[in-house]
Amino acid sequence: MSLLETLYGQPVWLAIIISLAVSIVIAIAGIIPSAFVTAANIVYFGFSWGLVLSILGEALGAVISFILYRKGLKKLSDKIDSARSIKLLDMLKQTDGIEAFVLVILLRLFPFAPSGLVTLAASYSRMGTWTFTVSSTIGKIPALFIEAYSVHTVLGWETEYQLAAAIFVAVAGISYYYWTTKRKKRRK
């Protein structure tokens, strides 16, 4: 972690700005896992402050990406028609008010719903920015706590176990990718 080593001795606000900026970029990209930023935050700031900074970064990233996605979707709304969609995400598109608020919280809590898709669907819905901000942040807190605790635990492991875990995750991810790709090809 050479960036973290470079930041030691620098003003804390610089590390905070870098962490928030990286979190925002990850949220806008929509497909990059945030666990690396959470790990860096925990290593640099400790568990409690690292978790708080991760929650803040993810919340800011979600709101900024929500606004950007909404602006982009307004331009593309006539061209968007998904042949295959996720039922809860479709439901979110048609909702507003308290129903949309609760759906975003539930989708943020659901471990397999990609964060970028939830934000995209919410930006396509009729829900307001403030409602999305509050519900998204409430939903992200438990997920980030679990992520931060897991990262904190793994960082406490010996290097050999960390490497084994990383290899396992990489193999599982690649296998899952090929399995889903193969299934999609068989359906066509």
Rank of each mutant, 00 (worst) to 15 (best):
V102I: 14
V37I: 15
R126L: 14
V104S: 10
G97S: 10
I18S: 02
F36I: 15
I138P: 13
A35R: 08
L68Y: 06
S150M: 08
S135D: 08
Y8T: 12
A29E: 10
I16G: 05
G61Y: 05
S150Y: 02
T180L: 10
Y149P: 00
S125K: 15
L56Y: 01
L163G: 00
A100G: 15
S65N: 07
V43K: 14
I28S: 12
T159Q: 06
D90H: 03
E147R: 07
I67W: 08
Q94D: 15
L20G: 04
Y161R: 11
K71Y: 11
K188W: 06
T133S: 15
I67V: 14
Y178Q: 12
K93D: 08
V154K: 00
L20F: 04
E160N: 05
E160I: 04
L107S: 12
A170L: 05
W130T: 05
R187F: 11
V12H: 09
A21D: 01
F47P: 14
A121L: 08
F47R: 12
F110H: 05
L155F: 07
I80G: 10
L88N: 08
T95P: 05
P142C: 05
Y44M: 11
K74E: 13
R183S: 10
G116D: 09
A172C: 03
S19Q: 05
I17H: 00
D78R: 14
E58P: 00
S115I: 06
F132D: 01
D96L: 04
E58F: 03
V43M: 15
S65V: 08
V22M: 13
A148W: 11
L106M: 14
A62Q: 07
G72P: 03
G57Y: 07
G50Y: 13
K87Q: 09
A165I: 08
A100V: 14
L107D: 02
I67T: 02
E147L: 13
D96A: 13
I55Q: 01
I146H: 02
K79Y: 13
A40T: 11
L155V: 14
I16R: 04
